[in-house]
Simulated assay, not measured.
Amino acid sequence: MTFRKFIASIHLYLGLITGFLFFIIALSGAIYTWQPEFSRIAFHQEVKPEDQPFISISDIKNTLQKNFPEGDFRTALYRDPASAIEVLIYVPGTYYHAYLNPYSAELIHLQDMNQGWISKLKNLHRNLLLGPPGREIVHWVTLIAMIMLMTGLVIWWPYSGKPGKEKFTVKWSASPKKLNYDLHNILGFYATWILIFTIGTGIFWGFEVVRESLKEVTGENALKWDSPLSIVQAGSLNSQDEVLNKLIKDYHSRYPEAEVRINIPHKEDEAVQLSAIQPKAGINAVDFYYHDQYTGALIEGNFQNGASENRSTFSKINGLVYDIHFGSVWGMPGRILACLASLIGASLPITGFLVWWNKRKLKRKKR
């Protein structure tokens, strides 16, 4: 058996074994690319802008106490004037997002984030709706998919010479068998250069050995970080809301173009964390700040999650991985490319199976 035939055999049998699972993972990933837009519609996040200040943390607490008293209020994300405030709430066994009108504090929508079709779509992509065992299956199918891409490129290259025009152009007027072959061979070639990144980032998340190795290479494990802590002041707990109200107002004034998230302290020495998020700038552009929950004073130090310019090499790579996986690193064009590449990726097991089946039928005829 020649080397090329050996590579073709690996490509074929791995595809037959994992093709159906990869189809599900790729198709669900392509659809989930548009999760922000789906969520904005399904969770009623859009509001009519008004010429008045946003509500305070105290207002949010009052609304939650009235409508969802069993919930544990954790964070509030203040966004642009046309978007509802997104509130994270914990309850035993799950968590909710509550969406509040930023001007009236009216509860617009309450969503159990482990329920609904968007949650099911996410879990279908991450674990095939099978929980932890399914997550492991997805990780290994992702690794095999990377091998499929590499072997596919070897098969795509002609037996001799350089690739001709026919290797880059689909002949739409060809017979069904030839058209199917072109869809697999040529579209697969183009999609591969995007899928290498989306699948490669999936491997980064899926295998701890990859992340730990990168931590060693970048020196992440040798870094020492400070812990942002509040100085406990007895009898000052009642003033927490006043501090939180002032902080969120100050940060929204300071970062008018950013989304601002504030964490609600749950321990006596816990600091208030605020993050300034530039919606189109990616994970690595997020700045984190810490304040004393009793006085509101800024806490300074060398924190693992701090100012974006002080982020470690590993943290920057980790953030970049997230943006690459969803295509957001290239903005809207990147998300469109990631979606199209994933759709083509989902088609490859189907067209590949048909290529194999047609060849099999041809061999039987000859016999």
Rank of each mutant, 00 (worst) to 15 (best):
Lys249Leu: 09
Asn185His: 14
Ala145Asn: 08
Leu223Ala: 12
Lys5Pro: 06
Pro158Arg: 04
Lys66Ala: 05
Lys162Ile: 08
Pro158Glu: 04
Leu64Arg: 03
Asp226Tyr: 10
Glu270Leu: 03
Ala271Asp: 06
Asp287Glu: 10
Val355Trp: 08
Ile203Gly: 02
Trp356Asn: 01
Lys215Gln: 15
Leu124His: 06
Thr313Ser: 08
Ile55Tyr: 05
Pro349Gln: 07
Asn302Met: 00
Asp112Thr: 06
Ile350Glu: 05
Ala222Asn: 12
His139Met: 03
Asn180Trp: 07
Leu129Glu: 05
Thr169Tyr: 07
Trp140Cys: 05
Gly235Met: 07
Val321Trp: 13
Gly161Cys: 10
Met146Ser: 14
Asp250His: 09
Gly93Cys: 00
Arg335Glu: 15
Thr295Asn: 08
Val243Cys: 05
Val321Gln: 14
Glu166Leu: 01
Val286Tyr: 09
Asp80Glu: 14
Glu300Cys: 01
His139Phe: 12
Val210Gly: 12
Gly188Ala: 06
Ile85Lys: 02
Glu208Met: 12
Gln111His: 08
Ile196Gln: 07
Gln304Trp: 01
Phe168His: 01
Glu86Ile: 03
Gly200Glu: 13
Pro228Lys: 09
Leu187Ala: 11
Ser275Asn: 13
Tyr78Gly: 00
Val154Leu: 03
Gln278Trp: 04
Glu268Gly: 02
Met113Tyr: 02
Ser175Leu: 03
Gly219Phe: 07
Gly200Arg: 12
Gly71Cys: 03
Gly29Lys: 14
Gly334Asn: 05
His44Thr: 06
Phe189Glu: 03
